[in-house]
Amino acid sequence: MERQLMLALVVTAVLAGTGLAITRPFLFRLGQDGPPSASDSRGVSYRGAYLAGSWRPATPSRDWAGFQGRGPGGAK
């Protein structure tokens, strides 16, 4: 009994692992909402994200209007 169970376990593991490795069902697809997770490399940053199926580039924030640092008036 345990022999058949072990054999079934091996066959299932091989078929599931090989099938998932070939079909890759969880891989990022272009147009898929959310941040991409497609890169296997380090030092990568995405300049945008998918929203409602279309790529929306991120606008670089170089606007300093919202910066409220401590100016001389804040010194006590």
Binding site: L27, L30, G31, S39
Partner: peptide, 12 residues
């Protein structure tokens, strides 16, 4: 060096 980039993805 870190000079390589790999992208695994599916096209629409």
């Amino acid at each position: 060096q870190d000079d390589a980039l790999t992208l695994n993805l599916r096209p629409r």
